[in-house]
Amino acid sequence: MATSQTEGISITTCPICLEEFKTPKYLPCLHSFCESCLNSYIISALKSESRGKSGKTEFHCPVCREVVTPPVPSVKYQEWAQQFPLNHLLVALMDQNKLKAKVKLCDPCKAIDDAPAVSWCVDCNEAMCQNCTSVHKRQKMSRDHCFKKYR
C-alpha cells in the first residue's frame, strides 16, 4: 500500500527543506518558507529563467506558481527574501510547540545527540544546551542575544 509523502509533515514544516521553519517568511499568496530556503529558491529560479538576461523583477511561488513581485523590486534579487514579512503566526505556533514538549532538546544538537535544553535564545527562537548556550554567547553575531532559562 502506498503511503502519503505528507505523512509526518506539520503546519510548521517548510515545503522546500521539509524541516521546521527557520525565520518563516510569507509571500502575497500566503505560502510560507524559511527565509534562507526562499532566498536559495529565488536565486536559483532567476538564474535558470534569465539565462544571462538581467532585470527580472518577479518570480513564481514554489508551491502555487503564482507570480510574486517583491516589495522593493529595485533591490538586488539576492536580498528579496529578506523583504517579505515574517509569519508571526507560525513563529508563535512553533514557540508554543516547543514549550509543550516535556523534555526539550537542544535545537542545534538535534542531529548529533539528545542534549537537554537549558536555555532559550529569544532572538534565534532556539532551545540550547549548556555548551551551545556558552558558544552562542561568545560569538560576535549573537553575544547580545536575550536568553531565558528553561524550567
Score class of each variant (00 low, 15 high):
A115T: 11
E126Y: 00
C109H: 07
C109K: 06
K98V: 12
C129P: 03
H136W: 04
D114Q: 12
V103G: 09
S119H: 00
E126H: 00
T133V: 05
D95A: 12
M94T: 09
D95Y: 13
K102G: 14
W120T: 00
L105A: 06
A115E: 05
C132A: 04
N97S: 13
M128D: 04
K104V: 15
H136R: 03
D107L: 02
A117R: 03
K100I: 08
A115F: 04
A101Y: 10
A92D: 10
A111V: 14
V103C: 11
C121A: 05
A115K: 13
D95F: 13
K98D: 14
A101K: 14
A117C: 01
A111N: 14
A127W: 08
V122K: 05
V103I: 13
I112V: 04
I112W: 03
W120H: 07
R138L: 09
H136Y: 05
D113H: 07
R138H: 07
L99I: 11
C132K: 01
N97K: 15
V135K: 13
V118D: 06
L105D: 02
A127Q: 08
P116R: 15
M94A: 07
A115H: 06
H136P: 01
N97F: 15
E126Q: 05
K98F: 12
D107G: 01
N97M: 15
L99M: 11
